[in-house]
Write a protein that binds this DNA or RNA. Structure first.
Ligand code: SF4
Ligand code: SF4
Lengths: 140, 140
DNA sequence: CTCTTCTGCTTTTGTAAATTGCATGCCGAA
DNA sequence: TTCGGCATGCAATTTACAAAAGCAGAAGAG
């Protein structure tokens, strides 16, 4: 079980945008370079974020991406699920019919609990919270 | 982020052994068939479980695997970590030196929290608990 | 002995993640 | 109204790792 790079890059990107403040428009190339991630890969991620209107895209010269929502109102879960769809730690979750053992399967039982507790964590922190935490670390 | 089949099969296998009770010795072929999983794959998984002495192996005719510990004392976390090593939801956890951003990285921060809460769930349930839950479901 | 079953190691296969490429569309500036 | 910068959309590729299969060898029971 591994957190994917797409998820990591996406969250880092959104945080970077938010840090620039004032809904400034930043070209993707700058975001990619600042985070040290491949630009084309990040492009695809940001397209998903755009669809979820977490960021807003601007074409043309002086174009780029700006925030689409107030970082105080965007949870990590929203960002992550915008990138890679709803969480399913195991294939049978969300599709009970895929396995005959489903109703009494202890593995499914514990994985569902695990997933729930994972999502709770991601829901608890907003982008603003994460930036706040980072500032704290820098200050101390 | 996905729970792997190795983890799933391993937990299912241990549960199956425990359900047979009395530390009976069961050949791997039976475990594999009962769970509908490839035997050679399960073999590798059980080798790891053997090293962690969660199960005990017996060679030769009438050989197979029996439980190595009381299911009341084995948590799901122990089983899972025996199979695939310690949990690292993201590469920088467990190796802080691998990334310069590490000390102030908000992504690492939230992933560490997520991992902790995941492990708490896995630690809360023993194999016996899981079997108990299954019985309940069957009864109702 | 010999048959059965695990053991360790190697190899193959399959699939999804991660990355790259390119033609196209849009926009703002000059 | 043209031009250059930048996002878009889709396709293709590469890489990585999970999943599975194979096989010679060791160990145990009878
Ligand atoms: S065996 Fe259990 S965990 Fe695996 S797919 Fe079926 S229900 Fe889900
Ligand atoms: S950027 Fe953050 S999450 Fe990614 S590797 Fe570095 S510390 Fe870990």
């Amino acid at each position: 079980m591994q957190f994917t790079k797409a998820e990591e890059y996406g969250v880092l990107g959104v945080i970077y945008l938010a840090e620039q403040g004032d809904n400034r428009i930043i070209p993707l190339s700058e975001v990619a370079e600042s985070q040290g991630v491949p630009e084309k890969f990040l492009a695809k991620i940001f397209q998903n974020l755009t669809k979820a209107s977490i960021v807003r895209s601007h074409r043309g010269i002086k174009g780029g991406f700006s925030l689409g929502k107030n970082p105080v109102k965007v949870t990590a879960r929203e960002v992550i699920e915008a990138i890679q769809g709803p969480y399913n730690l195991i294939r049978c979750i969300g599709d009970p019919a895929s396995c005959v053992k489903h109703p009494t399967c202890p593995v499914r039982f514990i994985i569902e609990l695990a997933e729930r507790s994972l999502l709770e964590v991601f829901e608890k922190y907003t982008i603003a919270d994460l930036i706040g935490w980072k500032q704290e670390q820098l200050a101390s």
